[in-house]
Write a protein that binds this DNA or RNA. Structure first.
Length: 752
DNA sequence: GGGGGCTATGGGGGG
DNA sequence: CATAGCCCCC
């Protein structure tokens, strides 16, 4: 008989049971630092050791980094078979499958992936086409409505029929979101483009509609499914998981790992409800709770436990450690954000000399990316190497996106967003007026931007400019058909004039841009030279189209530079899953952390608290918290109270007792120095109190009467027109220059 | 059609 | 404050 594999001896009892329960549904509730990744990887290794083929295992993560980490750890146990495990992010795995199956749902194999910028640009255009007021229809808000609809499996038709959603949109003064959504989906389809949510939604559609038995094919293929960070899945992801796992005679080999206390992505639709639903959907579920923390010393663990008790509604769980008591948590106060930065940098220097900590062992974590600046300033001044993650990613930089747009346009002639970006960059005399005319023709005759460009009749001069542009792109496209990604990219870089343009800019910024541009080209070269295994598949296709597919889902965090010794600066969200010997959590102030956006709803504060919980549990030995009494925010000096979270830490775990304010912080809105408050845009009408307002029936609103509106105040009805069942009143409100057009069936007006 | 400057607006997290 | 969209002027 074979001896038990040695990796099983590296596990505690609960971990080992979780690893060895291979069949049937399993839920692993894993506290921070409890060996979650170890359990996941050893479980996969154990599956392979038990004779399961690596490609029959599907492991879904939220970041590429987590997937890579997992694979490299599996590799240590089972060797290079690990490469063939289908491990990757939800988005990348589904994108890869869709690339093969897309025609079954009416998409081309070489579909484009629209990033957030593309999506917003498209929405901006749609809002314009529909003649909607872009002050009430904010692209960001509209996109987030669409995104959350998709994440909840609500297609445009269902959206248009949901009284609840329509009501919400009306309240937010954007009643026609449902129409924008419908148009947006059609335009994406027409462009052969998917946005991030579509990668999930259309994969769901593929399985659900089941053309050619494709669902059964993938159900059979993925015999074992694992989901990491389950607390951050949304409804759509859960639905996909169920489609893969639930079928007649299924062994339901599904293992999900998560921690409700670390759920920090509800803003993008994640719901802890999935954990509860999972328990209901799989009654034979086996639950394992990992509560022993191997990462942090006692004071840190105790503080984490204490803090999280302030949240209601959580799965009962208490992490513990048998590590030493360790250092107490240090709290640093600065009078200003600048002083906070300096004192944090001072503390880093002190830790480095006294405790011999390397840069890589240190992280500065903040709530918002904008906070990195001051820390960068002092680290630079002290000659400490650092690296900022997040913020504007490499692929979002203008010079990089421009080049990528050229590549996209050269591969997919229907990619309207790419074309609009490059048609006149570098300048070639095709201006806004021409572009508008092309867009209008495309809209009118339902053509792609590219086809409209070829069809439109304008002045001789303009037409020849357009022809020259089309000829150029056609040559790029031809090159892309035959040459590899690098040759094509170089051909495009030179042929488009981008190379020359960027090279010729001698300014500091220009040199930086040219460097980024070259870094992109180097990346293409690397792509064609290395046979990478991605998501369990060896990439042999070296075409530009494939390259584009591979980079579409990359972020800043994926860019590994591990030989360098640098201090890590990143948002707390980005730090999830990581650990550092010494962690600085900075900016612990009311309105910043917790964010002012969260202060109105208790459940949002709870999420901020979970975020704080995530932050402090990244630390192994040294945890330092900091705040500033004042800081520049949005162009103004603001005074914020210390964060309520500071008070939730047990006092005997804090070193600098007395720094924290004794009294409960005042949670009122930020105070402003002097009278720098920006004047309110337009006249802010007097708000009408709830009780004083009795809306009149629609029939009472007639021309000439004076009415009261909750937001706009008093006004005179000048005119009523519009369709019978959608009457529009033109009302002149006091103190508002332009008359408002108000739909009577929605608006609440009181006749005075 | 291009460029510069004004102003409104955001202001959070990310695949 | 930083940025982006928009408007106006050349």
């Amino acid at each position: 008989m074979e001896t038990a594999p040695s990796y099983l001896e590296e596990l505690n009892d609960v971990q080992r049971n979780a690893v060895m329960t291979l069949e049937g549904p399993v839920l692993v509730v894993a506290g921070p630092g409890s060996g979650k990744t170890r359990v996941l990887t050893y479980r996969i290794a154990h599956l392979i050791r038990s004779g399961v083929a690596p490609w029959e295992i599907l492991a879904l993560t939220f970041t590429n980094k987590a997937a890579r980490e997992m694979k490299s750890r599996i590799e240590k146990v089972v060797g290079n078979k690990a490469n063939y495990v289908m491990a990757g992010t939800f988005h990348s795995i589904f994108a890869r499958i869709l690339r093969r199956e897309a025609p079954k749902i009416g998409y081309p194999n070489d579909f484009t992936i629209y990033d957030t910028d593309d999506a917003k640009s498209l929405l901006r255009e749609i809002i314009k086409i529909k003649n909607l007021d872009n002050t009430s229809y904010k692209v960001g808000a509209v996109l987030s409505r669409i995104s959350s609809a998709k994440s909840n499996l609500i297609i445009p038709k269902a959206y248009a029929q949901s009284e609840e959603l329509l009501q919400q949109d009306r309240m937010n003064k954007m009643p026609y979101v449902y129409q924008i959504y419908d148009k947006y989906v059609k335009r994406c389809e027409k462009a052969g483009a998917m946005d991030f949510d579509d990668l999930l939604l259309l994969f769901f559609k593929l399985l659900y509609k089941n053309p050619d038995g494709v669902r059964q094919e993938y159900q059979q293929k993925f015999k074992y499914v694992l989901v990491d960070e389950f607390q951050d899945t949304n409804y759509l992801q859960y639905a996909i998981m169920k489609l893969l796992v639930d079928y007649h005679g299924s062994p339901q080999n599904i293992c999900v790992v998560g921690d409700d206390a670390q759920s920090i992505y509800s803003f993008r639709g994640a719901t802890i409800e999935n954990i509860l639903q999972f328990e209901r959907d799989y009654p034979t579920l086996k639950v394992f709770k990992l509560e022993q923390n191997y990462r942090s010393t006692h004071h840190i663990v105790q503080a984490a436990n204490e803090i999280i008790t302030n949240n209601k509604n959580q799965i009962k769980k208490k992490i513990w450690t048998d590590l030493i008591e360790g250092e107490r948590i240090k709290v640093i106060k600065g009078m200003t954000d600048g002083e906070e930065g300096r004192r944090v940098a001072d503390t880093i220097v002190e830790q480095k000399t006294r405790n011999h900590i390397k840069n890589t062992d240190i992280a500065i974590l903040y709530r918002t990316n904008a906070q990195s600046r001051v820390f960068e300033e002092y680290l630079r001044r002290y000659n400490l190497k650092y690296r900022v993650f997040g913020g504007l990613s490499f692929y979002q930089r203008k010079e990089v996106k421009d080049m990528i747009s050229y590549m996209r346009a050269s591969c997919n002639s229907k990619d309207d967003e790419a074309f609009k970006r490059i048609i006149n960059y570098p300048k070639r005399g095709i201006g806004k007026a021409t572009i508008d005319k092309i867009s209008a023709l495309a809209e009118e005759q339902d053509l792609s931007f590219w086809d409209a460009m070829g069809k439109i009749k304008l002045t001789t001069r303009t037409n020849s400019l357009l022809l020259a542009f089309r000829t150029m792109i056609a040559s790029f496209n031809k090159k892309a058909q035959t040459a590899d990604a690098y040759d094509t990219a170089m051909y495009i870089a030179k042929g488009s004039g981008l190379y020359k343009l960027l090279k010729g800019d001698p300014t500091i910024e220009g040199i930086g841009r040219f460097e980024n541009f070259n870094a992109l080209l180097d990346g293409v070269k690397e792509f064609i030279e290395n046979d990478e295994v991605q998501n369990g598949v060896i990439e042999t296709d070296k075409s530009l189209g494939t390259y584009l597919q591979n980079i579409a889902l990359l972020t800043d965090l994926d860019d590994e530079k591990d030989d360098d010794d640098y201090i890590t600066l990143m948002s707390i969200h980005a730090a999830k899953g990581l650990e550092f010997k010494s962690v600085f959590v900075v900016g612990l102030e009311e309105n910043l952390f917790p964010s002012y956006m969260s202060l109105t709803l208790p459940e949002n504060i709870d999420e901020e608290r979970r975020l704080f919980y995530v932050a402090i549990t990244r630390a192994e030995r040294y945890l330092t918290l900091s705040y500033a009494n004042s800081r520049y925010q949005y162009g103004q000096m603001r005074f914020n109270d210390p964060s309520r979270f500071l008070e939730e830490i047990p006092q005997d775990s804090i070193e600098s007792y007395g720094v924290v304010m004794k009294k409960k912080p005042d949670f009122s809105s930020p105070k402003l120095i002097g009278n720098f408050k920006r004047p309110q845009a337009r006249n802010m009408p007097n708000k009408i109190a709830e009780g004083d307002f009795n809306p009149s029936p629609q029939s009472a609103i007639k021309e000439g009467v004076t009415v009261l509106h909750r937001k706009f105040g008093k006004g005179k009805v000048e005119m009523i027109d519009g369709h019978q069942n959608n009457l529009l009143a033109t009302i002149n409100f006091e103190g508002i220059d332009t008359p408002k057009r108000i739909a009577l069936k929605y608006a609440k007006l009181q006749v005075l």
